[in-house]
Amino acid sequence: MDEVLRNLKPVRPPRFASVRSIVALILREMSATYGRSPGGYIWAVLEPALGVALMAAIFSVGFRSPPLGTNFPIFYATGLLPFFLYINVSTAVAQAINQSRQLLNYPRVTFIDAILARFILATLTQLLVGYLLLTGILMVFETQTILNLPMILLAYSMAAVLALGVGLMNSVLMTRWAIWHTVWSVFNRPLVIVSNIIFLVDEIPEPFRSWLMWNPIVHIAGLMRHAFYYSYEAAYVDVMYVFLVALILGTIGLLFLRRYYRDFLEL
Rank of each mutant, 00 (worst) to 15 (best):
L121Q: 10
L212C: 04
S195T: 02
L104R: 13
S90C: 07
W177I: 13
D202Q: 02
H181A: 15
R36D: 05
I198V: 11
I193E: 01
H226F: 04
N98G: 14
P48N: 06
L255Q: 15
V45W: 00
V186A: 08
T251R: 11
L257D: 07
Y260Q: 05
R64N: 13
M213R: 12
V245E: 13
E206W: 07
A53D: 01
P73T: 01
R20K: 13
F208E: 09
M213D: 07
L68I: 03
Y34K: 10
P150V: 15
Y230M: 08
G40V: 05
G51A: 03
E3T: 11
L267V: 13
R262I: 10
P73C: 03
V186Q: 06
V140K: 05
Q102I: 09
F111I: 15
P82H: 00
V11N: 12
G250N: 12
L247T: 14
V201Y: 01
E29H: 10
A56K: 02
V239Y: 05
M240T: 12
R118P: 04
E233S: 15
I115G: 01
A53R: 00
M158E: 03
A122Y: 07
S185D: 13
Q95E: 10
P38D: 03
L8Y: 11
N105S: 11
I197K: 00
P67V: 02
S37V: 14
N148T: 09
V19F: 07
G79S: 08
N215S: 14
Y86M: 11
L168T: 05
Q99L: 12
V129A: 12
V218K: 07
P67A: 02
R176S: 14
V239L: 05
A56W: 01
Y241P: 07
V93S: 09
A49M: 01
L5P: 03
F72P: 00
Y34V: 11
L25H: 09
Y229G: 02
F72Q: 00
L168M: 14
F208T: 12
E142D: 15
Y156W: 12
A94T: 13
L265G: 11
L132T: 12
F208Q: 10
W211R: 08
N7A: 12
S195Q: 03
F72L: 00
G39Y: 06
L162G: 04
P205N: 14
V11M: 14
A17W: 09
S90M: 08
V19L: 09
L68T: 02
I120K: 06
F72K: 01
L244D: 09
M151Y: 05
R262V: 11
L154Q: 15
P190G: 09
S21L: 07
L116P: 05
S157R: 07
V61P: 04
F16A: 13
A163L: 06
Y156M: 06
N215M: 11
D263A: 12
V129I: 10
P67W: 01
P190R: 06
G253D: 13
F264W: 08
S210K: 14
F111G: 09
L80K: 00
P205K: 15
I137E: 00
A221L: 00
L8V: 13
P207F: 02
A114D: 06
V129Q: 04
